[in-house]
Design a protein around this nucleic acid. Structure first.
Lengths: 155, 155
DNA sequence: GCTTGACCTCAAGTTCACTTGAACTTGAAT
DNA sequence: ATTCAAGTTCAAGTGAACTTGAGGTCAAGC
């Protein structure tokens, strides 16, 4: 079924869990590459599965396809990534995840303090203060990291 | 500047931090309401600022506009929400945030274990296992709650 | 009386990450 | 020989959450 370590679209789709259309899209976007058979069909090297697993994992921590492509570009295209490669990337991801967690914790704490103080108006509440009201003593809406945040555009 | 406790679009935009176009959109979507002046201009009651702060906060924890509308609908439209109203909602949000944090922590732990074990292939790694490889001993990609997850469609 | 600026409506555009559909070719099996 | 599944390209559609643009109204200030 697998002639020469080369995979068809449907095989890659099945084994990666991505739809064939997504694979074509990713190729279009430069995240993966594929060779062609004599009749024009895509032929994937097995390494593509590693890249796709990477894509999924990166997506799971909230990276955009653009960012994923950039990060994939830092992995040497052909050879299997070294431990150093992986550690560099995972440090990056780890930081990102930590930031997200910290942001959510701040959000939760803000919510808790809102319950505690019973400030129902939400207007002077640090939890969602968008810069309303002259008494801007709160730190503003700096609870979430950019990717999660929906902030009042400053002024 | 504020005649009779009534606010213009630009005032609400400034004080809520939402663009005027967003305010019109939210009205269209039934998240807020506005009266009209004799010449057809929007006239907002001050309460709209509370609702908008609510919208922003809810958006920050990842609720869709649809969900926000549903939750706003559980607040009695006219009167100021009671402490009980707020506690019911905030319990809901609190749970949601906790889930998100827990999901990210699992993701981080998965990442850490990947660094530890040096499994560069990402293929049998629980961190991003998309269901590839017969040795499906890992729990699958159940790391993130639905809203954050990008899972391999099962089969 | 005229310009300015704030406002109005409604349709269409934007971004992201894909999916869907139409129209066509290929390789293998019956 | 024909039928079928699997593949191809390219254009257009999807949905969420808005924004932008065109074209028009209205009240106030000079």
């Amino acid at each position: 079924m697998d002639t020469h370590d080369v995979l068809s679209v449907s095989e890659v789709a099945r084994r990666s869990g991505f739809a064939a259309s997504a694979l074509r899209y990713y190729e279009d976007q430069g995240l993966i590459t594929a060779g062609r058979s004599s009749s024009g069909r895509r032929r994937y090297e097995r390494g593509v599965l590693r890249r796709l697993a990477f894509v999924r994992a990166a997506g799971n921590i909230g990276l955009s396809l653009q960012e994923i492509r950039d990060e994939l570009a830092t992995l040497p295209a052909s050879r299997t990534p070294t431990k150093a490669d992986w550690q560099r990337i995972s440090r990056h991801w780890r930081t990102r995840i930590d930031d997200q967690i910290a942001a959510l914790e701040r959000l939760r704490d803000g919510l808790d303090s809102c319950i505690g103080c019973g400030c129902l108006s939400l207007q002077r509440c640090a939890f969602s203060n968008p810069g309303d009201i002259a008494s801007a003593q709160s730190p503003g809406a700096a609870y979430l990291p950019a990717q999660l945040r929906r902030v009042a555009p400053r002024r």
